[in-house]
Amino acid sequence: MMVFSLYFVGLLGAVIAFILNNNFKMGIVVGSALPSLIFALAIFLLENYLPAPFVEDAPVIFYGAAFIGMASNKILSSYILIGVSGLLFTFIYLHTSPYFDGFGGALGTTAALCFLPVYAVKLLLNRK
């Protein structure tokens, strides 16, 4: 159940940041940072009521997935594909994060690597 909730966090992080960035014209930095801050504060306030692994991983997943939401709707306008990128980000984070200890920029790089295949699928579908 906790793994499912972490995937949901990744999906929400990407889609919320995308909506704030594009629909509410908050820009990429505020659109990504504001929901990440609010989510992290909520986790901090509810820390005693949540499972420890969720408290440890959820804010990082939300923050990293919010980098995906920095995409312009001129490049990719599908909420579904942005959400799929957030799910892919969560999968890669959960299975590779121990290997990135000590590396700077791992979240942003992972977010970019999760966005690119989804964008490629969009390009391939548009060619047909």
Score class of each variant (00 low, 15 high):
2 M>P: 06
6 L>F: 09
6 L>W: 02
6 L>A: 09
8 F>S: 08
11 L>Y: 09
12 L>Q: 12
12 L>K: 07
12 L>M: 15
16 I>S: 08
16 I>V: 15
19 I>T: 07
21 N>P: 04
22 N>F: 12
24 F>S: 06
25 K>M: 05
25 K>L: 11
25 K>Q: 10
26 M>S: 14
29 V>Y: 15
32 S>D: 07
32 S>Q: 11
35 P>M: 10
35 P>A: 09
36 S>R: 05
40 A>T: 15
42 A>G: 03
42 A>C: 08
43 I>M: 07
43 I>W: 03
45 L>H: 15
45 L>N: 15
51 P>Y: 06
51 P>C: 04
51 P>W: 06
51 P>M: 07
52 A>Q: 08
53 P>C: 11
56 E>V: 10
57 D>K: 12
59 P>A: 10
59 P>T: 05
60 V>Q: 08
60 V>C: 05
61 I>L: 04
61 I>N: 00
62 F>Y: 02
62 F>K: 01
63 Y>R: 03
64 G>E: 00
65 A>S: 11
77 S>R: 14
80 I>H: 12
80 I>V: 15
82 I>S: 00
84 V>S: 00
84 V>N: 00
86 G>P: 01
88 L>R: 06
92 I>L: 09
95 H>G: 03
97 S>F: 14
98 P>N: 13
101 D>H: 10
101 D>E: 08
103 F>L: 15
104 G>N: 12
104 G>F: 09
105 G>Q: 09
106 A>R: 12
108 G>D: 02
108 G>F: 01
111 A>I: 10
112 A>L: 14
114 C>M: 06
114 C>E: 05
115 F>N: 02
115 F>L: 11
117 P>D: 11
119 Y>T: 06
120 A>P: 11
122 K>F: 05
122 K>Y: 08
126 N>P: 05
127 R>E: 10
